[in-house]
Write a protein that binds this DNA or RNA. Structure first.
Lengths: 209, 209
DNA sequence: TAGACTGTCTAACGTTTGTTAGGTCAAGTC
DNA sequence: GACTTGACCTAACAAACGTTAGACAGTCTA
């Protein structure tokens, strides 16, 4: 809890299928689910253990500390949304318009955040609560993801497709803001990700590029 | 901590000047300052007491529980930003354009959130971490404030001043999102509220109303 | 079949948290 | 000058937290 560094325990690729691998994944799944709804401090090792069906002490067979679990969830979450957005953009025709590309990226981000799994939203919520070492471990993952939006924002500004005098930096921050704030108000029975993606895109891209 | 309801201890008007009133205000100030930077759980009664220069137990002379303090800070914060935005809009000439009005409101909101005092940003950060009763006590204050943005968004959509197919509801959520996410990235030495307000307005209002 | 390894459990530890009961002491009131 | 009140303190409480040590059963390996 007190000491220095958090080892990056996020899963680059799915490991082999030993018996303990399942428990390890179960622990991360439960942690993400609880983290998403309750936040960093309310996500206790005993709560996680209960959800998995083991005892709190047994978690230490798989992880060295609580913060290692949190960091793994956070980083897996950022990596997941980065892959989702990257693949969605890669699936587009080379002739796709700027509007199509932005809407696709926004939809992929919102989908990862609001509908698919708990990791991304869990990481987003936990980040501001988590202690410094956890945030430090997450920073490289975040920067790698934000680079996608840096490039998109620069394209939009260069094309003159948004309001005059808007810098690419501010455009990126505004886009990430309106998307990342959505867990605060999104209700599956009241909103649809496709609609939101279309509206957010139209909002930003009033001048067609 | 466990039980039911949180009495609304926010200060509608500044009370008379008894000796204990200063301590009470000091406690709220310290709580807001710590809450803003550290969040709900890291804001402990002993930390608050230390900052004020009294002992933790003495806080209970002024407040019935920790959550009563948190709720008071949160509600004062929302009321403060509501007053700030309302007064800024009221200070505008009756002939002010829609663009002027939106930029003024955005600037007042960002100013309250990023530069003026700790209450508003503290409340924003604590809200998602706080237990249900605290959030319940905050809801009326939040709704009263959001009504301002509901009306502004409806005006903008009615004037056709933003992207086509954007609902007033989504416009409000997008605006609040890009503004309320700003504490995550704002640095006083790197950004200026006036610039951000101008850019956010231009972003949303590409079609002049 | 002996021994090592895996995965989990029990049972505690030290710390921190919100909270409370009861005491203290100066300032104001009758 | 007795008494009340306001404002604070001391000292503890139970609960919850992350974490650890050591035991135990099942499975794999030599």
């Amino acid at each position: 809890m007190t000491s220095g560094e958090i080892v990056d325990a996020s899963e680059g690729d799915v490991g082999s299928a030993r018996s303990g691998e399942k428990s390890r994944r179960d622990i991360l799944d439960a942690a993400a689910r609880i983290l998403r709804r309750r936040g960093y401090h309310a996500t206790t090792l005993r709560t996680i253990a209960d959800a998995v069906g083991i005892k709190a002490g047994s978690i230490y067979y798989h992880f060295a500390s609580k913060d290692e679990i949190i960091a793994a969830v956070m980083n897996d979450g950022v990596d997941a949304v980065r892959r989702a957005v990257t693949e969605a953009l890669a699936g587009l025709a080379a002739t796709a318009s700027l509007e199509e590309r932005l809407e696709t990226a926004v939809r992929a981000h919102l989908h990862a955040l609001l509908e698919f799994g708990d990791y991304t939203s869990a990481g987003l919520k936990a980040y501001s609560e988590a202690p410094e070492p956890v945030r430090d471990a997450a920073r490289p993952h975040r920067l790698a993801y934000e680079a996608i939006w840096d490039r998109l924002a620069e394209e939009i500004v260069a094309a003159g497709a948004t309001g005059t005098g808007v810098s690419a930096r501010s455009l990126k921050l505004a886009l990430l803001g309106m998307m990342n704030w959505s867990p605060e108000w999104y209700r599956p029975d009241r909103h649809r990700v496709d609609d939101l993606a279309r509206e957010f895109t139209a909002l930003v891209l009033s001048r067609r590029g």
